[in-house]
């Protein structure tokens, strides 16, 4: 298709058109707070915590200090199983910088067993070596952890979730 306007080469665009360049350096260190600190410390120990609302009885994971539905405190922490089901997933062939991956990353929202709402919002990864025809909505999954020495109280302390064989 014939495009209108004046065509610029890459060199012209980057080097010949006068521009001002500025690289911001922005560093943040967000305090994790009461609920997420409990959650992350749990991951370090190989435990998945959720919280229960005493008003509406929902159990959510990751834990929250307050229930967004009732706007009341949520301070009953419960240890949850390390299994769940895939609520939704994607086979992602593109990185944040728009370069292409040869092997798909598999982000998934996982409903941890014992939580009472769906989707419970636990965003994580499915093992990318899993044959793609095995990755299905409602498939049962299990957490695969880093070794205790490698864990540092981070969501990546769980390496990924593996599909459980029936």
């Amino acid at each position: 298709m014939e495009l209108r306007g004046t065509k610029l080469s890459n060199d012209e665009f980057l080097n010949k058109v006068l521009s001002v360049t500025y690289y911001p350096e922005l560093d943040y260190a967000w305090a994790t707070g009461v609920a997420i600190t409990k959650f992350l410390n749990g991951l370090k120990e190989g435990v998945i915590y959720g919280t229960k609302c005493n008003e509406c009885s929902r159990v959510v994971c990751p834990p929250r200090m307050f229930c967004e539905e009732c706007h009341t405190p949520m301070n009953e922490y419960v240890e949850l199983p390390q299994t769940g089901i895939i609520n939704t997933f994607s086979l992602a062939y593109i990185r944040t910088d728009a370069t292409r991956r040869d092997k798909a990353e598999i982000p998934a929202v996982i409903d941890i067993d014992g939580t009472t709402i769906s989707p419970s919002g636990f965003l994580h990864l499915i093992n990318e070596d899993t044959p793609h025809d095995k990755v299905k909505v409602n498939a049962k999954v299990k957490a695969v952890w880093k070794s205790p020495e490698e864990r540092k109280g981070d969501i990546t302390d769980i390496k990924y979730f593996d599909i459980m064989e029936d």
């Binding site: 967000w30 994790t32 707070g33």
Partner: peptide
């Protein structure tokens, strides 16, 4: 500095 609460938890306290 308020480091014991996350930003959401801090706002929740003010809201209540």
């Amino acid at each position: 500095e308020i480091r014991d609460l996350s930003y959401k938890e801090m706002v929740y306290q003010a809201a209540v």
